[in-house]
Design a protein around this nucleic acid. Sequence first.
DNA 1: TCAAAAGTGTTATCCTTACACCCATGT
DNA 2: ACATGGGTGTAAGGATAACACTTTTGA
Lengths: 308, 308
Amino acid sequence: MAAGGPRNVLIELNAVLVALIDDAPKVLTLEDGALLPSGPFETGHPTLQTGVRAWVERQTHHPLGYVEQLYTFADRNRAEAGTGRRTVSISYLGLTRERTAQGEREPGWQSWYRYFPWEDWREGMPGLLERAILPRLERWLAEARDPVLKRERRQRVEGNFDEKSWNEEAVLQRYELLYEAQLVPEAGRPRARIADPLPGAPMRYDHRRILATGIARLRAKIKYRPVVFELMPPDFTLGQLQRAVEALAGRPLHKQNFRRQVEQQGLVEETGASTSGTGGRPAKLYRFRREIMLERALAGTKLPITRS
Amino acid sequence: MAAGGPRNVLIELNAVLVALIDDAPKVLTLEDGALLPSGPFETGHPTLQTGVRAWVERQTHHPLGYVEQLYTFADRNRAEAGTGRRTVSISYLGLTRERTAQGEREPGWQSWYRYFPWEDWREGMPGLLERAILPRLERWLAEARDPVLKRERRQRVEGNFDEKSWNEEAVLQRYELLYEAQLVPEAGRPRARIADPLPGAPMRYDHRRILATGIARLRAKIKYRPVVFELMPPDFTLGQLQRAVEALAGRPLHKQNFRRQVEQQGLVEETGASTSGTGGRPAKLYRFRREIMLERALAGTKLPITRS
DNA sequence: TCAAAAGTGTTATCCTTACACCCATGT
DNA sequence: ACATGGGTGTAAGGATAACACTTTTGA
């Protein structure tokens, strides 16, 4: 079988490490936001999971609430291209609790909407979509001479970027479309940088792609698994919980429906206490019912669809 | 950090390759059903996807309709334990079309219910659940002395194996529970084989676990992506389509509701022809509308829940 | 003429969505 | 008193689940 066999292969780990800080979804980055944490897998560990956990917890000094594998790449790219050494990079999504009131912000936590500003619909459709993105995609359509290709491109743009058909889970597809249309800096060959890139900070290598994968996975997951709670403090109000889900999903939720669903699914229970630090009437405090994870094969946090 | 650095690492591929043959969901196996196809990744290929495609198509001589990564393991197990060589195994789910009327059956295709007989609820709850599995799990509960542990086990068993809470997607959780309860042969240490294993054929290494992952993924996927069509012939009747989905989901569907949903979602279109080989009234033939994959970010095949 | 599968019309129920409103606190 | 967020009742609409029935063929 061709040039197979053992070789110098490097196993690299990448982490999309998420925390909620002041109602903003943040990811841990290095190098002034240009990189996700990554490093070699320490072959001493018995399993990948334990290796990832140990490595991430050393980087962040936070216990890791939840870890999930995202994707494995083994593509020939990166610096190693010529060296005959192959890199397999295995990426993970991790959720952690960030103590917020600490005053001093830890560095490296960046809002993920810095990288994907078009993904934040909490205040309605972001202006830059209409202003900067859709016109550029329109131009990309126009570039296609072949009518079949043009039609295909139009359908993809409409299916992924239109206000009506907006699906907050399609983070990766949207990024890939922008990449293909050469609208993000990462798409340029080393020399030929993109002339006038879109708003949204780039990252080195394929790290923004990995981040998109992580966001997409998390947005999908919160709908059928109670993972939000890994990002919440032990006690929280329903308003806080709603804002957390909104921050992740990138869109506003309907208050009453959200509450009804959370309560009727038995996801939370009252602590008995309430808090008065919220600016209005004091809110009851709740905590996550951990038992639920055993009780049912799938416990979900459904997201009602509409505004305010 | 620690014992890291480049080492002799072997990249291995595993494939869960699925086809539908005579309304049975089949997987390609080797060694008389004891192994999934697996082999080294040929480092010549530019990307993993192309490597997998090439490798699988050489094994099966069938074009591969759909490929998706399942999971990556790098655990210290297998034969290489002492050799200092590490194996990273990357598993894939692949869907292919098997020409059925060929008369001569290709070898190696096994019904996946051979490995997971308790997962087939098309004719109602399988008798062996009540007869063989639930009593064993009951005994496993009884073994727990610690009341907390006992309660936890009970909740997991009830959440995953009960008739009422049965969730056909939880294939992996159920297998893992049986593994933990030492009811499958794979759970035994090399010497000490399980005394009286459950019905359901075992596989070598962790291959049955990988298969469970693949089935679970596919069962989840058919609900929101039109992947069933990768397993269907170009033209098919709605009855065939329904039996295909039932075979994968492992449970019966409601005819009218199934049809309504398929049609109203615009997933298929009539070919104009009809077939008379079905034993009763001739059925209209349909084909998949491939355009739909571009039109919408998510196109789904919803599964109505009930019997007959 | 009967078995077998295709194909259709209609209803009850529940969940989703949405509107409108009241409550308790700090300033 | 009023702004702010917490908290609730209820109704409209749509999707889901279910029932019962007709149609068209082959044996």
